[in-house]
Amino acid sequence: MDDVKIPDVDEGGVPDQVRRAPQENQDVSSFSEFAEELLSQYGWYLLVLTVLVYLLIQYLSKRRSSQSTAPKIMQDASSVARRQEAMEAARRKMQEELDVKAAAFKEKMKQQEEEKGRQKIEVWDTMQQGKSYKGGSKLSQTAEETSSSTTVLKPKTDKKPLRSADYHPLSGQGGGSCSWRPGRRGPSSGG
């Protein structure tokens, strides 16, 4: 019995060889290792997938809420119809005003055409009588001006030509004090 060894016993009564590190839950450690490996290989893909799912949920919730507001829009259909009727009435009123203005403009144009026709007839009559066209129109215009206004017309002064008939600008003659002379030849004296 010499060969039998008795191991040393600690205070707790458990041999040193039997004592081990505190035991962890085997299920949690294997899951954390799997998650670490998955994130290291596919982390960016998972992040993009998560964002897309979030945006899809937001879109669907907005769409669902807009469908729930559809009955509210149906209730407002009567107010929309009233607004459209009011707009149509305003358009009709504006069109009627425009029609009245167009009729007045046509009437004015018709009167102007009649007046032009009368003037042409008067000119023709004056020409048949042997009077000149300009003379007749000036007489009628001066009669109208004197009857309609009290302004005094100034007589026109006879304008004289500014230059004499024998004026030649390049010859230096007949121009009075102004005449063209060629510049000096030679080198310039500037510095």
Rank of each mutant, 00 (worst) to 15 (best):
S78A: 12
V14N: 05
D8L: 09
Q111H: 05
K154Y: 02
C178D: 11
R63S: 09
L47G: 04
P71L: 01
R20S: 08
G117E: 09
N25F: 00
S61I: 12
K156Q: 09
Q84S: 10
E11K: 11
G190S: 13
V14M: 03
P169S: 11
G13R: 00
P187Q: 07
Y42D: 09
G117D: 08
S189L: 08
K110T: 13
S171Y: 00
P71N: 01
S61F: 05
D125C: 10
W124H: 15
V123D: 06
I57E: 04
K156R: 09
R91H: 08
M127W: 03
R91K: 15
A35K: 05
L55Y: 04
E88I: 11
E33P: 00
Q67H: 11
K160I: 06
V51N: 10
M87S: 13
K72V: 11
A70L: 13
A77Y: 02
P7R: 06
A102K: 12
V53H: 05
T142N: 12
I73M: 12
V123H: 01
Y133G: 07
D76R: 14
K62F: 06
D3K: 12
K116E: 05
S30M: 04
D76L: 13
E107D: 06
K134H: 09
P161G: 04
S132Q: 01
Y45V: 15
E88V: 12
A104S: 09
I6W: 01
V123N: 06
E11L: 10
A77N: 03
H168T: 14
S164A: 13
G175K: 02
A77E: 03
L170V: 10
P187W: 02
E145N: 13
S79V: 08
R181S: 12
K160N: 06
K110M: 07
L162W: 04
M74F: 08
S149F: 02
Q67T: 11
I57W: 05
E114P: 00
E11V: 14
Q119M: 15
D76M: 12
V51R: 14
S66D: 06
Q111N: 10
R181D: 04
K72H: 02
S177Q: 05
G190R: 13
D8K: 15
R92H: 03
Q173N: 09
L38V: 09
S140F: 04
P161F: 02
V4G: 03
S61H: 05
S65I: 11
Q111A: 11
I57A: 12
S148P: 01
R91G: 09
G135A: 06
V53E: 06
D76I: 10
C178H: 11
S61P: 00
S171V: 05
P15H: 02
Q41T: 15
S140M: 10
R91V: 14
A70M: 07
R64V: 10
G172T: 02
A165E: 10
L47K: 12
V100T: 14
G175V: 01
R184G: 10
S30C: 02
D158Q: 11
E11T: 14
E115P: 00
R63G: 10
Q112D: 08
P7I: 07
L52I: 15
G186P: 00
T146Q: 12
L46W: 00
K160D: 03
G13D: 00
S132Y: 00
A143Y: 01
S137A: 13
S189E: 05
Y59V: 15
G174A: 00
G183K: 14
E107L: 05
T146G: 10
